[in-house]
Design a protein around this nucleic acid. Sequence first.
DNA 1: GTCGCTATTGTGGAATACCGCAAGATCGCC
DNA 2: GGCGATCTTGCGGTATTCCACAATAGCGAC
Lengths: 200, 200
Amino acid sequence: MTQACAHIIDDDEAIRDALQWLFKTRGVATRLWPSAEAFLEAWQADWPGCIVLDIRMDGMSGLECFEALLARGNRLPVIFVTGHGDVPMAVAALKKGAYHFIEKPFNDNDLVDLVEQAIAHDDENRQAAADRGTVEARLATLTAREREVMDLILEGKFNKVIADELAISMRTVEAHRSRVFDKMKVRSAVELAQMLTALR
Amino acid sequence: MTQACAHIIDDDEAIRDALQWLFKTRGVATRLWPSAEAFLEAWQADWPGCIVLDIRMDGMSGLECFEALLARGNRLPVIFVTGHGDVPMAVAALKKGAYHFIEKPFNDNDLVDLVEQAIAHDDENRQAAADRGTVEARLATLTAREREVMDLILEGKFNKVIADELAISMRTVEAHRSRVFDKMKVRSAVELAQMLTALR
DNA sequence: GTCGCTATTGTGGAATACCGCAAGATCGCC
DNA sequence: GGCGATCTTGCGGTATTCCACAATAGCGAC
């Protein structure tokens, strides 16, 4: 499941099959889900790709599914598909972060293009998230004391001042500082600042 | 014109007046424009507030006006209002960066709420832009050589290495470095890195 | 208890950064 | 030619960083 794919969630088997065939001819991998519930149950945060989500379905609606995904921190771009949408619904969905909102009947090529854009978009997100992930993983290896020292380093303070504020000796600060650089895999305070400021 | 206001662009005088009255009762300053052309002619990049833009108008349409504003780097949130919109139009507008898309007839309170949110949103944007502006203004005071040195500092290099790469003496690098810190109003390379990384 | 991790401190020295003062050279502008 | 901005360099000295080596102490896990 490391392969990016378009998750097609629709309770109409004929549509699922038609979309599967469509995407197959265009070289886009798909995975089919007969209901929002089924998808939510299987959903994993690290799945790459995008979601093509029908709004009107038996059981949980596409909008409810979207909300549930939001609550779980879903990052996959969601493309809504509906035959009975309206402007307020589309606006609300997009403002909540949906990737697109398209009405049936749609042009096949348009949908494929959208899905490809969404998958590419997800790729970028995923890359950025991975970068953040590695930095956070390194942060996680720091001890509490090391993090305290790091914070003060990031305020541009001298070891001397840090030693004062933490009421420890300068030598100790140096030791922590050295370990911080080591664990964060940077060679200077400047690199550290850039790495962490990039996280926002 | 330093006061944030809602720019109402509509070719129907009755609607303009009605909206002006509505916003006045809710304490939102407004400015009325009878056409997209009139607004575009007067438009200034530093106006704060938001835009309420009717789509169907004689002459230039709201959508065309929006495109023109995009091309000019407009930052004001745009709220589209229309009686004849459809889903694709709304989706396209939002994906291009419009703030909202609302259909007539609309609930007065909804529109006022939207406008207030948009103005608040613009305030935040403007604050962030101002921060970027001050940093960029400082950057602009740097000489070419100082910027070169700064770039190398931001790569975490020692003065010695920088001197080598630029084929100048270490003392010269120190002089530039000192002036860079001075002009950028920072006291350490760490602060500099944070200030510039925050710009993205 | 022993082992491993963490926090702590010290010594001593080499490498760098930082600062004030002074000054030569180039270049464009009036 | 004179003026101002910029780039350049050196001297001498202080402050800070960085590193290797060495060592003590607390604390939780097995």
